[in-house]
């Protein structure tokens, strides 16, 4: 194997790395903002409140990310009213379609994590909040969410890694992310091993980075769960 081709194409890989990280961070931010209300609503016992978020979660978790992104990128072209509207400037760009698809997908998974964490809140914590005279909204903000989001941290770390791996789909719909860069190098020089192993190496490093970041976050936010140092 000859990795000099990879060294020569390093700028391409690095710009791909930038696109991957950018898509990942933006999708996670948008996804989390969507997931918070969806997760809280899905945890509700009232059927009128939880029906839509639970349906959304079911669809996002039950169908492949590739099909979801295709549905937006290729599928929306079917609707003439969309093609003629201002929104078409957004939906004709692979970048925005990928970002919207990734955001909705991670919103579905994250909402389910938040729903599960809320459902596991110890009854005593909620009763204590009520006993202190907190209204439901205040109890949610001050007691339930801080406790539930801490519990959700390990599962969310896994979701971030899955989303990183999901971003390769950007490379499928013509964007030049890490995977797209590897595809270009492979088709120019016909070096499938070197090109994809290099991309795999970058993804592996990103995965380790995320694992390390979440270890740090758990050390910070789960400090109260650690055995006390002597």
């Amino acid at each position: 194997m000859d990795f000099t081709v990879i060294i020569d194409n390093l700028p391409l890989y690095l710009s791909g790395l930038r696109v991957t990280i950018e898509l990942l961070i933006l999708a996670l931010l948008c996804g989390f903002v969507l997931a918070l209300p969806l997760g809280v609503a899905a945890a509700s016992r009232r059927a009128t409140v939880n029906a839509f978020p639970r349906g959304f979660i079911y669809f996002m978790r039950g169908t492949p990310l590739l099909a979801q992104v295709y549905l937006i990128y290729h599928g929306f072209a079917q609707f003439d009213f969309l093609r003629e509207s201002m929104l078409w400037a957004v939906f004709k760009e692979a970048y925005w379609c990928a970002l919207i698809g990734f955001s909705l997908n991670t919103a579905g998974y994250t909402a389910e994590i938040i729903r599960g964490a809320i459902a596991q809140t110890p009854r005593g914590e909620i009763e204590a909040a009520r006993a202190c005279g907190m209204r439901p909204g205040v109890a949610l903000r001050r007691v339930i969410l801080p406790s539930a989001l801490r519990r959700a941290l390990p599962a969310y770390g896994n979701e971030v890694i899955f989303m990183l791996h999901g971003t390769v789909i950007a490379g499928v719909i013509t964007l030049v992310d890490l995977f797209g860069a590897a595809k270009i190098v492979n088709s120019r020089h016909f070096v499938p091993f070197e090109s994809f192993i290099a991309a795999g190496f970058f993804y592996l490093c990103l995965t380790f980075l995320i694992v390390w970041l979440f270890k740090g976050a758990e050390r910070k936010w789960h400090a109260h769960l650690r055995p006390r140092a002597a």
Partner: peptide, 8 residues
């Protein structure tokens, strides 16, 4: 578990 499935 560290490398995306499509890359593999």
């Amino acid at each position: 578990r560290g490398i995306p499935d499509l890359v593999l």
